[in-house]
């Protein structure tokens, strides 16, 4: 998880109630646990198990990927902008500390 998450928001200064579209992608192997290593042993599974998006203190949604989610997981979602606040996104895998990204959303 060396590189920062890549985040795109359709409009960081939306009108109240406007639907904001967000795209987020991180670099992650999403090791399924089905692949063998050089010695023929299965590589231990390590996938992103949980993604969470909040606006300020308010949870928008969670996403729980399984092993069928592609590597370098991509998530696109929308939300209705009801308040200004920090859009906080957190990725948690099975090994490393969680990864976090923030974007300030200001109602115009």
């Amino acid at each position: 998880m060396a590189k920062p998450p890549r985040i795109w928001v359709s409009n960081a200064k939306p009108a109240r109630g406007e639907i904001v579209r967000v795209r987020a992608q991180i670099e992650h192997q999403m090791e399924s646990g089905l692949r063998s290593d050089e010695a023929g042993r299965l590589r231990p599974r390590n996938i992103v198990r949980k993604f969470e998006a909040r606006l300020g203190q308010t949870l928008l949604f969670t996403w729980e990927p399984g092993i069928s989610i592609a590597q370098n997981p991509y998530i696109e979602f929308t939300f209705a902008a009801r308040d200004s606040g920090e859009l906080v996104m957190v990725w948690a895998d099975e090994k490393d500390p969680p990864l976090e990204a923030r974007k300030t959303i200001t109602l115009s």
Partner: peptide, 22 residues
């Protein structure tokens, strides 16, 4: 592993939409 992923939305989202890659 058929269950590709699960989303849990809060009413605060105001939408229920997502795009992922499998």
């Amino acid at each position: 592993s058929p269950l590709a992923c699960r989303f849990s939305f809060s009413p605060a989202a105001g939408t229920a939409e997502a795009a992922v890659r499998l």
